[in-house]
Amino acid sequence: MSRPILSTHVLDTSTGTPAGGLFVELLKKRDDTWTLWHNTVTTCDGRIQFPFSKESMAPGTYKLKFNIEDYYKKSGKTTLYPYVEIVFNTTEGAHYHIPLLLSPYGYTTYRGS
């Protein structure tokens, strides 16, 4: 199986476990507006491999929107962030792994491999 062109992995650093069941939207910027491209939920391992090939995911500006508030509400916790948005640019044919390390009062991201 070929490597997905876009993937993410969310870890809840407050519990030291993957953030399973987290609703995520993928949006693409077109002119000055964002268009919903795909939405899904992280697996029990906190992962998403988006179903796009190099041919179907054109270079451009994309945004992953993670619904943090609902994720923490399920476990009776509150959070400062209702959602986290990560905006990134793509080029033709490259692989993008966009991890999110999450806690109720902080987060970080980076380009993974």
Score class of each variant (00 low, 15 high):
60 G>N: 11
83 Y>P: 04
104 P>W: 15
112 G>S: 12
22 L>Y: 03
12 D>L: 10
95 H>T: 13
71 Y>S: 08
9 H>S: 01
7 S>T: 09
2 S>W: 10
74 K>R: 15
65 K>M: 09
103 S>W: 03
45 D>T: 06
9 H>K: 01
47 R>H: 07
28 K>Y: 03
25 E>G: 00
72 Y>K: 13
36 L>K: 14
85 E>D: 09
94 A>M: 12
72 Y>T: 13
92 E>V: 07
14 S>V: 06
40 T>P: 04
82 P>R: 13
57 M>Q: 09
93 G>K: 10
13 T>A: 08
97 H>P: 02
57 M>A: 04
14 S>A: 14
5 I>N: 00
24 V>T: 01
45 D>A: 08
25 E>T: 04
96 Y>L: 01
12 D>Q: 10
83 Y>I: 09
110 Y>M: 05
13 T>D: 04
27 L>S: 07
2 S>T: 09
76 G>P: 05
59 P>S: 07
35 T>I: 15
109 T>N: 07
23 F>C: 03
102 L>S: 08
108 T>K: 10
97 H>C: 11
74 K>S: 11
92 E>L: 12
54 K>Q: 12
90 T>Q: 11
8 T>G: 00
65 K>H: 07
41 V>G: 00
12 D>C: 13
19 A>Y: 05
109 T>L: 10
80 L>P: 06
44 C>R: 08
9 H>V: 00
75 S>Y: 01
28 K>G: 09
73 K>W: 13
13 T>Q: 08
97 H>K: 13
75 S>W: 00
58 A>D: 12
31 D>P: 01
64 L>R: 08
35 T>F: 10
60 G>K: 09
88 F>S: 06
99 P>H: 03
104 P>F: 14
47 R>K: 15
14 S>F: 09
44 C>D: 03
80 L>D: 15
57 M>W: 11
27 L>Y: 11
35 T>K: 14
88 F>R: 04
39 N>M: 07
52 F>E: 00
39 N>P: 00
101 L>V: 04
57 M>P: 03
67 N>L: 08
49 Q>M: 06
75 S>I: 03
17 T>V: 13
78 T>S: 14
16 G>H: 07
102 L>T: 08
40 T>E: 06
32 D>M: 10
15 T>I: 07
34 W>P: 02
63 K>F: 08
100 L>M: 10
83 Y>C: 10
28 K>I: 13
93 G>F: 08
5 I>F: 04
54 K>H: 13
67 N>T: 04
77 K>G: 02
19 A>V: 06
67 N>E: 07
91 T>C: 04
47 R>M: 10
51 P>L: 11
90 T>G: 08
66 F>R: 06
13 T>F: 11
98 I>G: 02
45 D>V: 05
113 S>Y: 12
